[in-house]
Computed example of a mutant assay.
Amino acid sequence: MVNLNGTIKSHNEANITFDNRGLNYGDAVFETLRFSGGKIYFWEDHYFRLMASMRILRMEIPMKFTMEFLEDEILRTLKSIEKKDGSYRVKLLVWRKTGGKYTPETNDVEYAISFEKLHNPFYVLNEKRYEIELFKDHFITSGLLSTLKTNNRLINILGSIYAKENDYENCLLLNENKQVVEALNGNIFLISGTIIKTPPLSDGCLNGILRKQLISIIKMLPDYILEETSISPFELQKADEIFITNTIQGIVPVTKYRKKKFVDTMAKVLLPKLNLKARMG
């Protein structure tokens, strides 16, 4: 089932017009949410990121788009299925209404909410092989727009095809300054000794919800120093540990990059703290 502008419909009935601006111009933003244990993980952070993204893209935010209204719409959508318990990946997509070419006729918006089942009710560590490589065919442009969750994801798509063709689980993306920015589907953290690094938003990495949560957790660890700083590709093989973070998977430890193999020590320390924060937050 899909919630299209407040109306619950089947996937076959939930149609959009051919001149949809999200389809034609990428004029859309979205949030990917994790629902488990009867609640949306870190909903307040997701909501304020969505509002900030809409403002940056000069979309008109409807008066009814309160945090309570959108949460109720998500929960109402999930209640449309027979089995209401469990864990779900929810996507909240907002696009500017049809009209105009590059210059919109209106800044008013429409929205859709969809979901799919998840297997685990909480975050778990992947214990399998997880080898990564750099994707160097195209680069992320550092700056504000790259930090938003828009549906302009061609670099991520091409990088994912490259990873699949070359038997990698993921790839790391670079910006125009050849600094490591993020993975194809999440932010990255690099651990060397007691130093934990993650790229700054100014380098063009996604303003990730899990990134924010883990930064706050790491800052509470007395034996480690967190640095939001640019990361050179040359640092990757010198690191003790690398992991990728996103809202759906949580923490994903990297096992290998080229000839270097990594441990998952810090990931195992952070995971229970993240699960606790997700349930309490």
Rank of each mutant, 00 (worst) to 15 (best):
I81G: 13
D45T: 05
A267P: 09
L33Y: 05
S216Y: 07
P62C: 09
M59V: 03
I40K: 01
I217S: 05
C171H: 08
Y257P: 08
G159Y: 03
K268I: 03
S202I: 14
D108S: 14
N156Q: 15
A28L: 01
T245K: 02
L276I: 07
K256G: 05
F135M: 13
G281T: 06
D264K: 11
L276G: 09
K212I: 07
E227S: 10
R76D: 12
P199W: 09
R211C: 02
I56L: 14
G193E: 04
L118P: 10
E235W: 06
R55F: 06
E68T: 13
F65T: 00
K259L: 11
N107Q: 15
I225R: 13
K268G: 11
S202M: 03
Y47T: 09
G193D: 05
I8K: 07
Q249A: 13
L271K: 02
N166F: 03
L78V: 06
A278W: 04
I225C: 05
V252G: 02
T194K: 15
Y41E: 15
P62N: 00
F30H: 01
R55W: 05
E13R: 07
G26R: 04
L70H: 00
M280N: 14
G186R: 05
L201P: 02
Y224T: 02
K261P: 02
T98R: 06
L221N: 03
G204L: 00
E127G: 02
K219P: 05
Y111G: 01
E176Y: 11
T198P: 08
K128R: 14
K268V: 11
N107A: 14
R258T: 08
V254N: 03
Y88M: 12
L57Y: 10
E182Y: 04
D223M: 13
Y102C: 05
I132D: 10
F234P: 04
M1Y: 09
E176T: 15
P272E: 06
